[in-house]
Simulated scan of single mutants.
Amino acid sequence: MEPWMNTITPFVRSVKILKSFSLAGEWMDYDHVFTYIEQGEAEFFLDGVKYYVKEGDILLMHPYMSHIIRSTSTFPLIQYIFHFDLYYDEQRVVWKETGITMEQQKIRVEKEMQFTSIAPIAHVHLSDRIDLKKRFLIMYKEFLDRNTGYLLIMKSICLELLVLFLKGQAEPKKKEGKVTKGWAIIESTINHINERYWDPELDNASISKHVGISTNHLSYLFKEELGITIHKYLTHIRIEQSKIKIIEGKKSLTAIAEESGFSSIHLFSRSFKATVGIMPSMFAATQSKVITKLQ
């Protein structure tokens, strides 16, 4: 960690969730932009360098970094985004708009340019994604509600998310490009979960029986390679599927719970709150504030 990182005092200016079926545009901001890809795939051109991003990727764009975005997936691109300054400044905190709209915002502040030497992309390990999304949604709720102390809460969460970004960059790559001996089994497990997540009877025993090895051995392989238990991954998939259905806004929460593999609305609500950080009803309410299309 660079020494200057111990001195930062972030000010979070804006928090938003963007969902778009067709996204293309070019932007430049005077502050930092943290973007987590929740769903979909896209091409990001950052200062002329092209990055292919997908679910689980974080992009951290420093001030005045031009970025062009093009969605490349057939399903909606969902981004979790927040804008922030590295350092609290009384003159800058009154700027609420994102994007450069005033002459003062064109003036570069050197202490805000610390991240220029750091690669702008990181990949979040599966075991960290649940925590990242939970923390972000708490930040999003604080930004919307603006209760006493919300700026301090957002500041603390900003620091936590920056740590996850740096962790994603620093993650050892010794296994990259190598297919491990147990990968075929893990891949079969993932495919089976993705196909059968809606079945409330799906559990470790039935999954291991399907792939043809003992429950203990499968649990070991899965945790060793993905850093997450089979049960937690299954719950993650069910919650992610339920979030997509909530965003679509066509069905009741009871129907969504059943279609996502939960045996009851109570279990669904409890699991959703534990994973996402807010109740599904609150998550549904926030979707009315989501910008569904950006031209």
Results as ranks from 00 to 15, higher is better:
L253F: 00
R270L: 06
I244Q: 09
H236F: 14
A257K: 02
K232G: 05
S264H: 14
G249K: 02
K243L: 04
H236K: 12
F222Q: 00
R270T: 11
G261P: 10
F268P: 13
Y220V: 00
S263W: 08
F272N: 04
T275C: 09
K250Y: 03
F262G: 06
T229G: 15
K250S: 11
E258V: 02
T235R: 12
T254K: 15
Y233V: 10
L221Y: 07
S219K: 08
G249M: 01
E225S: 12
S269T: 15
L267M: 13
T235F: 07
Y233I: 12
S252H: 04
Q241V: 01
S271F: 08
I230L: 12
T275E: 13
R238A: 10
H231A: 13
F262M: 08
Y233P: 09
K251A: 11
G249D: 01
I244E: 05
T235A: 07
S242G: 04
E240A: 08
E224F: 01
S263H: 10
S264F: 12
Y233M: 11
I230K: 05
L267N: 14
K232R: 13
S252Q: 10
I246A: 04
S271W: 06
A274C: 09
A274F: 11
H231C: 08
F222W: 02
A257P: 06
I237P: 05
L221M: 05
